[in-house]
Computed example of a mutant assay.
Amino acid sequence: MRVKVMALTLSISMAAAQSAYAQDSDITSEPFMKAALTVMVFDYFAAKCKQGGGFAASDVGKVEAWETTNSVAQIRARLPEFDRHPTQKQQLELALSTITQQITNQYTNLNPCSVALSVSRMPDAQFAKVSPQLLSSVSKPPKTPKKAQQPPASKPGTVTSSSDSEIVKQIDSFGFNSRTAMGIGGFLTVKIYPIVLFRNGDALTNVEGLSFNGGIAAHKRAKPDEWTRWRRQGGKLELASKDGWEALPFSKTYPKLPENFKLNGLFRSLSGTGNVAVGGSQSIAAWEQYRFSSDGRVIRGNGAGGNAESGDVSVATSNVAPNQRGRYRIQGMMLYINYDDGSSERRILIADPKDPETAIWLDGVSYVRRKQ
């Protein structure tokens, strides 16, 4: 298998990792996303190899040595955790489909055993060398949320040592900042994201810190770079930086949501990546949406799609997950959803109490109101 074909794996792997919004520092980090996709590609062709009789005797030991040295079994065992990260899961599945189809279409008389062996020999498949920190994390069992502190969830656990009401009392309001990020096709776009403004003058630049295991004090100790100070000066909202006070692009802030607050409408989050912006031919898009009703019902859907070209080969793929239906309630700064299938999720909700029709933020990710 030629190196340029294997490079496609790494290219799409990097794209999927960059487009994912990190909800878990292990699972959705770039090293793990790349490792996960590499293992998935290997397993795909290894399964086809097994159907044809399996690896040659001289190659069995090489494959086993690669898996042992690079903790492949531990990485493989954690793949089901992507069920709690539907956007990243769909991006991985889309990338896997694109890669395997391109390799299969590009080579006649393809030997899946040779392809699987080539994947295991890739430099970036040597996780022990390129991502040693990854092996230290996958060797440990994933943290299990404490059942007494939250209901079973299809999303990452969000456990705190302090109750939501105690945290809400410490919050003055939510402000907004912006940053440049990669979008569909690899084009740069400006993302607006919320920050938490505390009454004591502290500012949290990553709202997911509110759900940190151990509480916000533990989060401040673990991730001090996500904390700073804030103030209002001359009608502007400012954050402290190493170069002094810097004004945010938005001066408006949102207070906590009122009691019995309801949402109504379709809200969608769209993300993506690719390399079209730099002359390439790969484009990936993923979406997630919630349709809320004022009577407390909610329908959740998500999907992904993309296309890629290599020479005369063009591949288009798509994946749409079945809708989930359930009921929701809003309490303080939290959105609780219990689905009819028995699953549930718990998200940090930020919205303008006076204008909830434009956009909302769930765990810091913006969902824009769409037409019905």
Rank of each mutant, 00 (worst) to 15 (best):
Q150T: 06
A308V: 06
T273F: 12
S19H: 11
K4H: 13
Q18F: 08
F292Y: 15
N206Y: 04
L92V: 03
V190Y: 08
N338M: 00
L263M: 10
A217N: 15
R325G: 07
K140S: 10
G201L: 10
A181D: 14
K146F: 12
L188G: 13
K89M: 07
K4D: 15
I337P: 15
S25A: 07
A285D: 09
L37K: 15
K129R: 12
R370N: 08
I12D: 02
T9K: 12
N264K: 10
A128E: 03
A222P: 15
I216A: 08
W287P: 01
F55G: 02
S344D: 02
S241R: 12
F198E: 08
D340K: 03
Y21S: 08
P141G: 01
T69R: 15
L135A: 08
E67G: 06
Q149N: 12
A218R: 04
T205M: 01
G185I: 01
S271V: 11
Q133K: 08
I192W: 11
P356W: 03
D124T: 07
V119N: 03
V190K: 12
E259N: 09
D202A: 04
S29Y: 14
L79P: 00
P123C: 01
A73D: 13
S118P: 00
E309D: 14
Q23R: 10
G305Q: 14
V60Q: 15
T68M: 12
F127N: 01
C113W: 03
G296E: 13
M33E: 08
A73C: 00
I99D: 02
G303F: 08
K50V: 01
E226C: 05
Q133H: 06
R325C: 04
F127T: 05
N177F: 11
A47W: 13
S154A: 06
V320T: 11
A222T: 09
A56V: 04
I195Q: 03
M6K: 10
F212Q: 00
N200A: 00
M122V: 04
K62H: 09
E208Q: 14
K89G: 02
P258V: 03
K140F: 05
S173M: 08
K191P: 00
F55E: 00
T180G: 07
R346I: 02
G157L: 06
G306H: 02
V115N: 04
F45R: 14
I216G: 04
Y367N: 05
R229E: 11
V298M: 09
K354A: 09
Q233E: 12
A181S: 14
G305M: 11
R221W: 08
P156L: 00
M122A: 09
I337D: 02
S366C: 08
P145M: 04
K155R: 11
S136P: 06
G305D: 05
S118G: 10
F82L: 08
L197Q: 01
S131D: 15
Q88N: 07
K242T: 07
A116D: 01
R291M: 04
G265S: 09
P31C: 03
K220M: 06
Y367L: 10
V207K: 00
K354T: 07
Q324K: 15
V3E: 14
G201E: 13
F127C: 03
N338V: 00
G305P: 01
S58N: 08
I103Y: 03
K89E: 09
Q90Y: 01
I348L: 09
L134T: 04
V365D: 04
R370E: 13
G311L: 06
Y193H: 05
Y193N: 04
I27T: 05
S293N: 15
K256W: 06
T228N: 11
Y339M: 03
I360A: 11
L210P: 01
